[in-house]
Design a protein around this nucleic acid. Sequence first.
DNA 1: TCGTTATATCACTATATGGTAATATAATCA
DNA 2: TGATTATATTACCATATAGTGATATAACGA
Lengths: 108, 108
Amino acid sequence: MQMNPGAIAQLADYFKVLSEGNRLQILCCLKDGAKNVTEIITETGLGQANVSKHLKILAQASIVNRQPVGVSIYYEIADPLIFELCELVCERLSVSLEQRSQQLKTGI
Amino acid sequence: MQMNPGAIAQLADYFKVLSEGNRLQILCCLKDGAKNVTEIITETGLGQANVSKHLKILAQASIVNRQPVGVSIYYEIADPLIFELCELVCERLSVSLEQRSQQLKTGI
DNA sequence: TCGTTATATCACTATATGGTAATATAATCA
DNA sequence: TGATTATATTACCATATAGTGATATAACGA
């Protein structure tokens, strides 16, 4: 199987956006629905500048939508695939953990 | 939905491994089956030191298996989930591209 | 218009990451 | 044992990325 360099680069970019813990935390925070920046800050405990910076990256990647409402800006998830990906990976990681646990038990 | 910090960190790590284009290229190269380092170098066109470095990361993440055979080391895919993830994301990206194309056509 | 609130951006620092040339290590054979 | 081949590792450099404090910008109301 050969994938063209352009597609690979886009894939890498997509995974890169998801490769940062605090960004994932922000996305989890938005899973229930739209929130403004202050709400995200409160819920995540992250700094304001930091949150804004991460939100910008997420918006540019079309993973979240940005919606001004008065002085507030609301962000909501635009790409639900990310949660599907997270679930698949979490399953994988828990299976992996289970296997290691078994190995420790059997002494292999 | 709240995910514990440990799980988030593991998720981020997993995506981080996949967030590098040359690493993805190496993984694509291994999709057909096990290859030794020289074969990977030839097929990808990457440098030997660079390939070794990336393979180390992939092995430590349990995404590939490492199998010495004489002076050669063969690597093969240990975690097929990565291709599932890639397909899901590629679909998403192509849908996204199609939508942009439509927007250009309709002038929205 | 000015003051307040919400948010984005900038500039800086520290750390991480990717690629490379050189070298070390491992395996094999004569 | 030494030479050869295959591969891993090291040290270095350049670039990328994350977090923060300060500041700029946007929106609103008095």
